[in-house]
Design a protein around this nucleic acid. Sequence first.
DNA 1: GATACCTGTTAACGTTGATTAACATCGGAC
DNA 2: GTCCGATGTTAATCAACGTTAACAGGTATC
Lengths: 193, 193
Amino acid sequence: MAEVTAPPTRRLEILSAAAELFARRGYHGVSIGDLGRAVGLTGPALYRHFRGKEALLAEMLLDISDRLLTEGERRAEAADSPALALDALLRWHIDFALDNPALITVHVRELSNVPQPQRREIRRLQRAYAEEWVRVLRLIHPESTDDRARSATHAVFGLLNSTPHSTGDLDRDTMTELLHAMASEAFAGAFRS
Amino acid sequence: MAEVTAPPTRRLEILSAAAELFARRGYHGVSIGDLGRAVGLTGPALYRHFRGKEALLAEMLLDISDRLLTEGERRAEAADSPALALDALLRWHIDFALDNPALITVHVRELSNVPQPQRREIRRLQRAYAEEWVRVLRLIHPESTDDRARSATHAVFGLLNSTPHSTGDLDRDTMTELLHAMASEAFAGAFRS
DNA sequence: GATACCTGTTAACGTTGATTAACATCGGAC
DNA sequence: GTCCGATGTTAATCAACGTTAACAGGTATC
């Protein structure tokens, strides 16, 4: 019995292919037919797995936002000091971005195409994730302000999420260390008066 | 014939409105009708000013790429030292991004929707602009590599271009100095062994 | 004051796209 | 062996979109 529902490998396969295509051509630039073809099916077959194109995008973004927030909070709270918590957030985000460049791209670009009930929830998760960074930053720099920490956080997100546009000149480990060094110093610079 | 062409104020008005809409909803998410309505016209009226939707986007991206490159090179070469040239590039890019958040967004997202003859030219300009940064960085850090400088440059572009996503919490001057400090330190961190 | 060009408009066309309907196959439960 | 749910397919529907055609007003020039 072990399993409650059959392994939904098809859904995941579709979501993965869709992320790739949405990242490359944008949500509206990809048709249901394209999506099906990418996994060896016809367009209408997708309706056996998703309510529609918007629902597919919504599920994708919800999943990303939730993973970022949940694991980010977990690692930050497991750290022994604010400085180490920031380091944990940085490493988690960098790993995620390097592992899932397409997801990061879609996450940052396509929110506006998600219909309302779920758009609000995704926004909430994204905001909560950013606020976790702000919280940790304020512990390290209590003399600063939330606004400044928030702007610095978004700037560092931009830096880390630039990964997809970097044509893989550097190997993975080098890239990880480069991004970590740049982001750390960027934060330091943000709070040096 | 005195005048070669009448002052193309309508064209500029359309381009400006289109940048705003493309940034918010994506190229395919905006119809010709939307574009016309945004400037108080009907859709087909746009064909009096542009060959079509793709041509409009192409012109927009060509103009941005050219302005970034031309003025960037001008300022970098007017500087008295590599360090000052980098500073000039930073200030130019920050000013441009804060002045034209919508253009920056479109510039970075919609290249794939430009048809081929012009897509290649835009790519060329974008690459040349990035290479100008790489060139200046290598003058400052001759012990590093082009690959590393290129990756660092793209990361800093990501940081600077995050502006549009930052909900204007900070005033313009504060934001300028924050971005400048973060980007400068990010570069420093990229080349500290 | 007729002519022509510039800049609009509305109506029509052809295509594409998301979605749904109707029908097929297949594997397991009974 | 039959029945059924899960998962596909192809054909049909309906709206939206980019583009073009046909037509109109205004201004400027001769």
